[in-house]
Amino acid sequence: MNSTLPSGPAVRIEGLDKYYGSFHALRTINLSVERGERIVICGPSGSGKSTLIRCVNRLEQHDGGRITVLGTELNDDVGNIDGIRREVGMVFQHFNLFPHMTVLENCMIAPMIVRKRPRAEAETTARRFLEKVRIPEQAMKFPGQLSGGQQQRVAIARALCMQPQIMLFDEPTSALDPEMIAEVLDVMVTLASEGMTMICVTHEMGFARRVADRVIFMDGGEIVEEAPPEAFFTSSRNERTRQFLSQVLGH
């Protein structure tokens, strides 16, 4: 894994196919994400958007096409998979914090055992990122003692502690109460302003309008439309997109 790759896109997906049994979940997807680019993927449930980003760090195995992440192809080579996962952080809908470890330990474990950083260094990094997501005072608590919004911010800090080059967000606010959504989005906006490469599956259209470089609309396992936010929200000509937007923005 060469992390100081000169140029080329952060993620390149060519002709990607994915099946669940006989169900065709992703149909010949083509997508390229540049370094520092912020992509928002939206679409109705079951449209394949989560599956798509889960293919990028191989939580799902694709059946056809090519995925190249940071210049390395994602194939059956075990070394490539491990390398890519180290450089790609992920935030889940249900946080998936480790309940048997404190917040601090959640943030330290991966740098220590995957990146083999010494404990002291891992702790400094962890505290810095907890500061950044604005909950340094919760470091010694267990995830079960935190609110949903706080847990999701810890999850973001945990992913950042690996100092990834790309961040994947899989509906990070869908499981949160409305009043907690803002605190998580704030952290994501800050992250975006610092130039992180981000691929976000989300229905937060305000967030998309504010930070996205491109908005991608998926339906039925296909990319239906792909446009800069301004054009996407105002002048979409696709019937399915307009219908979806009216449902999401309508009320």
Binding site: F92, F98, I113, V114
Partner: peptide, 26 residues
């Protein structure tokens, strides 16, 4: 929950690290 192992995978942990540190203790 399956999400626990997925989170560990996404952090780049190997099989034995996932089992030893995340799955078995719980």
């Amino acid at each position: 929950p399956a999400g626990q192992e997925e989170a560990a995978m996404a952090l780049g942990m190997s099989y034995w690290q996932r089992i030893g540190r995340i799955v078995l203790p719980q």
